[in-house]
Amino acid sequence: MTGDRLRGWQSMRESRATRIAVVAIEAGLHARPAELFVRRAQQFASTINVIKERQCVDAKSILNVLSLAAEKGTVLTLEAVGEDAEDAVDALAELVNNGFAVDETRNQEQSS
């Protein structure tokens, strides 16, 4: 029992998760969505990479994310390693797939 729990705990700490996401936002991952993406990524402890074709960059660096020039329809692979890897790739994939709809609305409310 204790052994099972320990193994479960260890695998959680070292877990690795991958998601595929397709850029839905019309203008692509320009400065604003890239910033939102990076801020969200920074909320997780895991190491997170974004992969576009042969480019693999740190999801927590805006210079790196902007350098992908991910246009609408671009397929991105999100890879995380760490204790919150699953949550991290889920959250980021949702942002990318849903075109940042939630956050854009929130910003409009804030600025109005």
């Binding site: 692509g28 210079l63 790196n64 902007l66 350098s67 246009e71």
Partner: peptide, 17 residues
């Protein structure tokens, strides 16, 4: 021309790395 803007940002950010 959102694509041009994106590619300019790409160039700037890539070089500044």
């Amino acid at each position: 021309r959102p694509g041009d803007h994106l590619r300019a940002l790409e160039n700037i950010s890539r070089q500044l790395r």
